[in-house]
């Protein structure tokens, strides 16, 4: 596995009015690395995740994807977005398209694959995430866990260099969380580069190469899961972990 830097954030700042959501954020994600971002709500985790494919603009600093700085708008931005998959908290499957079409659409219209090849790939991916039998249903006919697995298949269909997960299990009923985390853990094992914003500490321990702890728009500390969960260095991480791990 090469260890090239795939995603590099340099001195990234973002404000919503008076609220400073990202403060001088520096983060480097290497190819094949699984980075899990945790922290209290309002820490800027989701904003950071969404900034990486410019669903959120930033006020200053630079974000570089595989050596190319993220452009402001236009074709070049669309091309870079196609290289980075995104999985949302609310799934965001195209509601008027079947499950199969959801996974086919980007391949045909962005990657210009033939319909046949795209359908073949989509079916293969749907099988892989365990939804092969539901290909002709509409998203609303599926459970949340199934929808999120389709969303992962849709992202994978683009052969992305990395996938961003923005709280992928937060909108799910508890019994459906694991089916999604299992798919994600599988991806992590296969060497997919992943940035995951989550509250699932079990997943962070099990699948992460690195845990990034954010609070108040800053990256407070980052370390391997064992070190972070075993011996958090900062007070804020200690108090955060104490709050969530006592239950």
């Amino acid at each position: 596995m090469t260890q090239a830097d795939l995603i590099v954030l340099d001195q990234v700042n973002k404000r919503f009015g008076d609220h400073h959501v990202l403060r001088d954020v520096n983060l480097t994600v290497r190819q094949g690395e699984v980075v899990v971002i945790i922290g209290p709500s309002g820490a800027g985790k989701s904003t950071l995740c969404r900034a990486i494919n410019r669903l959120e603009t930033i006020d200053s600093g630079t974000i570089t994807l595989d050596g190319t700085p993220l452009p402001a708008e236009g074709k070049e931005l669309a091309r870079l977005r196609a290289e980075v998959g995104m999985v949302f908290q609310s799934f965001n499957l195209f509601a008027h398209k079947t499950v199969l079409d959801n996974v086919v659409l980007g391949q045909v219209h962005v990657l210009k694959r033939s319909k046949d090849a795209a359908v073949r790939k989509a079916r293969e991916l749907l099988d892989r995430v365990g939804i092969g039998g539901q290909a002709d249903k509409f998203p609303a006919q599926l459970s949340g866990g199934q929808q999120q697995r389709v969303a992962i298949a849709r992202a994978l269909a683009m052969d992305p260099k990395a996938i961003l997960f923005d709280e992928p299990t937060s909108a799910l009923d508890p019994e459906m969380v694991n089916e999604v985390l299992d798919v994600m853990t599988g991806l992590a094992r296969e060497g997919m580069t992943m940035v995951v914003v989550t509250h699932e500490m079990g997943f962070a321990r099990r699948a992460a190469d690195r845990v990034v702890f954010m609070a108040d728009g800053e990256i407070v500390e980052q370390n391997t899961p064992d070190t972070f969960f075993g011996a958090p260095a900062s007070d804020r991480a200690q108090s955060f972990l104490a709050k969530i791990l006592t239950h």
Binding site: N53, L55, G74, K75, A78, R79, L80, R81, A82, E83, V84, G85, M86, F88, S90, F91, N92, L93, F94, A95, L105, G106, H109, V110, A151, R154, M158
Partner: peptide
Amino acid sequence: VPVGQAEAARSLGLG
């Protein structure tokens, strides 16, 4: 149409 629909489309690289 929920804003997430357009976000998902853009994140796939659609203009």
